[in-house]
Each structure stands twice: as structure tokens, then as C-alpha cells.
Design a protein around this nucleic acid. Sequence first.
DNA 1: TCCTTATGTACAA
DNA 2: TGTACCTAAGGAC
Length: 271
Amino acid sequence: MPEGHTIHRLAKDYATAFAGRPVHASSPQGKFSDAAALLTGTPLTRTEAHGKHLFLGFRDAEWIHIHLGLFGKVTFGGTPAPPPTDTVRLRLAGDTAYVDLRGPTTCALITEPEKQAIHDRLGPDPLRPDADPQAAYRRVSRSRTTVAALLMDQKVIAGVGNVYRAEVLFRHGIDPYRPGRDITPTEWDAIWRDLTELMSEGVRNNRIDTVRPEHTPEAMGRPPRVDDHGGEVYVYRRADQPCHLCGETVRTAGLAARNLFWCPSCQRKQD
DNA sequence: TCCTTATGTACAA
DNA sequence: TGTACCTAAGGAC
């Protein structure tokens, strides 16, 4: 399940499994059959991620554009590949590996200009070396919108999802309802650097861990614990449970159709 | 077996 | 703001 770290990891994994070698492409589910037929037998030449968008490059200027949405899943396996289930939107198969894509919001063949248009409407991605954090701050610092909503706005910053949003605000003690224009340059620098580090670790481990070493259950003398989404976190999906640091009850509320989580004691109005 | 939920986004009203 | 879309897992019956 996908925030930006998942997509960057997938870009690497697709490249490792297939890059430079011809692939067999198919769409058992049917919606990508025409494009799959067009690509079969051509090599995957490169892969790229920007925020939650994945691009698989074929030939000179053709790309498969994938967006997993909320439900999309990718599974890799070795050969021989088992028969695909009928929900597989796209299977790529090579000499040594196959990969199945299910449930994406987007899986489409696009041109280089179409790909560029997607980059153009996305904000900077903390996982991309070309990212400019100040471009994001210019939008944040001019906005009356809450910082929690801004962090989820892909035009402002690309790749942050509901988990990193909740966790990075907790780690910096920032009230999620503070308006963007109240976030100081210093705070934004710290948030950006932290996201870069957390998400890079997310790419390496293929999961989201945000708890600092000194706050792990082991360090705090508590029983070991992994949250049910697969990583260790402070507040995400911990509504009505005690804050790991102060014991206050973690709160939840709807914000822009998503669930927000925060500790009202650790995350105060200012600073 | 049904219902809810989920790390997302786009579009209509 | 609400709704539609894509899938699968877990819990309530």
C-alpha cells in the first residue's frame, strides 16, 4: 500500500527484475490488453518515480504510467510464473521474474509530453535529488489551509500520504490544524529533511517506521510491538490509545476525506 | 457471507 | 462536500 516510498521502491524493483531485457506483457483483467500487446517483446529501458506516480519506460519515448491509488498492489515472483488471477491488470514476465499489478487507479500508455505534464503538476518529491524544498515552502507559507491538508496536497509536496503526514507532524510537535502560513522556514526545513530521511528508510525497508530509537518499546521498557500496517509509528491509526510519549489519548478526526491522527498534548498550537 | 476499512485521486454539484 | 473507482483482508454474523 502506497505512499511515495513504495513507488520509489517499485521503480528500483521493476528495474532490477527487467531492465534492458525484453518482457512479455499481458493484461488478464483486460483493461490494458491493447497496450500490453503493443509492448510485448520490447525491453524495459528505465523506470522512474515522482511522488506516488510510477513510470516504466519502453523504447525511446513510451511510458507506462502507473498510479496505485488506495488499493493498488504489486507482487513480484520468480519463474515459472503461476497462472495469473483475473484481477491482474498488468503482468510483466521475463526470463527470471514476473510482476503482477492489481487494482491501480491508473495504468496507461503515455507519451513523453504527457509524462512531462504529470511532472509539471506535481510538487517537489523529498525522494528525488532534483527536488526544491523552497518551492514547496513558497506555497505552504502563503496558504491559510491547514498544514495537515497541505502535506497531503501533491501539488505542494509529492509523495507524502496519510501515514507520513501524521507521523512527521507528531515528530515535530506541530498541531495539524495550524495554517501553512504560520509554519516558519526553520520548521519547514526540519520537516523536509525529516521526510527525506524517513522516506529513504521507507524505500530501503519497504515499510514505514517513524519511531526514534530512544522511543522504541524496547528503549522505553515496554513490550515489543509492530503496528498492524507493518511498521512502528507514534500516532497513525492509534486513535483512543495512549500517546507513547506523554500518555495523552491520541485523537482522530476527518480532514479532507481522510483520517487524521495526532496527540493534542505533544502537538501544540505554536512551535 | 456480508460489511467495513484501507498508506488515493478525480470529478460533479 | 459527496461520490465513484479499483481490490483484498479482517471481523461480525
